[in-house]
């Protein structure tokens, strides 16, 4: 279980790195908007990459509760576990 979660986190950070401001360290506690400068449009495009990476559906209306990298990893883990 922990291995799965860490795997998700690692892959997620790789994708976030393509959207975040360069030179900023991405850690689970990083705030997607305020620290990584991922605005609402970037977040929507990031979600499409996440869906393809993990072969899941991530409805964009559940993103309102996502603030940090960890929040997003938790959401992916939850969706993957349910599928």
């Amino acid at each position: 279980m922990a291995h799965d979660y860490n795997n998700i986190l690692q892959k997620l950070c790789h994708h976030i790195g393509r959207f975040a401001s360069s030179g900023i360290e991405i850690v689970p506690e990083s705030d997607l908007i305020n620290q990584l400068a991922i605005d609402s449009v970037k977040l929507l495009n990031l979600v499409m990459e996440i869906e393809d990476e993990f072969d899941i559906s991530v409805p964009i209306n559940v993103l309102a509760d996502v603030q940090t990298v960890r929040d997003l990893a938790d959401l992916i883990h939850k969706i993957k576990s349910a599928s």
């Binding site: 869906e51 899941i56 964009i60 209306n61």
Partner: peptide, 27 residues
């Protein structure tokens, strides 16, 4: 309109039919 509906909203890449079908398949 999608937000108001309360339905789950999934986006596909603009005018990309392979992308649209892939997202339908997952459903």
């Amino acid at each position: 309109g999608c937000r108001l509906s309360g339905a789950e909203i999934i986006r596909f890449r603009h005018n990309d039919m392979a992308d649209m079908e892939k997202r339908l398949r997952r459903l």
